[in-house]
Design a protein around this nucleic acid. Sequence first.
DNA 1: GTTGTACATGAACAGTGTTCAGGCAGTAGG
DNA 2: CCTACTGCCTGAACACTGTTCATGTACAAC
Lengths: 209, 209
Amino acid sequence: MSHVTTSARRPRSPRGQGRRLRDELVQAAARLLDESGDPDTVTVRGVAAEVGVAPTALYLHFADRDELMVAVVEERFTEFARTIDAADRGGDPLEALIRRGEAYVGFALAHPGHYRALFGGFDVSDRRPDLADRLQTAGAPAVLALVDAVRRAPDAGRLGGEDPVVVAVALWSMVHGYADLARRQGCWPFMEDIGTVLRAHAAAFQNLS
Amino acid sequence: MSHVTTSARRPRSPRGQGRRLRDELVQAAARLLDESGDPDTVTVRGVAAEVGVAPTALYLHFADRDELMVAVVEERFTEFARTIDAADRGGDPLEALIRRGEAYVGFALAHPGHYRALFGGFDVSDRRPDLADRLQTAGAPAVLALVDAVRRAPDAGRLGGEDPVVVAVALWSMVHGYADLARRQGCWPFMEDIGTVLRAHAAAFQNLS
DNA sequence: GTTGTACATGAACAGTGTTCAGGCAGTAGG
DNA sequence: CCTACTGCCTGAACACTGTTCATGTACAAC
């Protein structure tokens, strides 16, 4: 696949700089993930070849392929949260929520590989509670930021009973589900763009106040 | 693993009954998919062993592993649609929509393997437009039934602008996203149950009329 | 220098999807 | 009856995957 032109053999790192390889592996994995769009296609041998190192060198810094992927997720989650937050700078709180949703889906469609690694859940939960914990703590800030944005909306209380968490879960489910369904547009041709969908709901909400 | 106890070698089918093996393979694949909950773990060798046949015998009836999975999806989609429709027998249209959503998520959580095969989209779209077409035509009735249920709701027009398709996409995205996020509960502990989420939205909708 | 160890490699194992040549058995034509 | 055909199925093998183990290499300290 993609015939990764086994880049020139990387020069050996000096004594204390072993962690450099770790970073290069994470970056290479993230790059391949972004190119392919499918976490399953980013392979140990592919990542190693991209860095210019033997496949086994990966196991000096990661116990598993899973652990490498979790490292990638931890790194990409910060950029994901930054992208969402950048779309929500003040203004009408309800409109800000919509812009957050558009940015959310925009990220998911622009970087499907990264998004699927973040929220696609490559089933690491079984037998690896440590990795599941790392995934949760990595993603928590992004989720909490959404709950906060909901809480700032004046009509939040009326949008979904009393609990802003319920509203946040509803919106999160909607954008995540939309992003996941829209990924393969060929299958479901009648998907409107997410802005239309969100604005329709927002219109319903605004009629409430 | 599951150590599939290579069942006794299946007796050879008589002359014209070759299609029997095809059906047995689909059923075995569906069974393994339901047990594991992960489409990736249903393997050609595993399915063949479950039926009691050599792995290569599968290629007499399916060009790919993908084609086998599509056959499973086509079969399970009918039961999925039947489950959803069974939850929507008359009554208040809005409450019927909520019951459809609960049944949707119920199916997804009760049979995660089947659900993921149906809507998880095991990335068959590239290079195989024929399989993508079969997936779309298999799933279309279920989607159209949802659009119809939305259209029957008296306030549908006000729920999402004028287009019931927009409302359907919003609800579909929400239940699909919820089902996908709730699958790994360990990661996101604060997911309310889908009934609460849907009813919160329904309350907002009912306030409109 | 010698030695120790951090950094890295090559060969190999079990698993995956898939291909290909071959064989077995029952049925149709002579 | 008997030959030959063909539908049903198998075994060995290839390329790929994640992972382990024994090996090696080169730098840094003593």
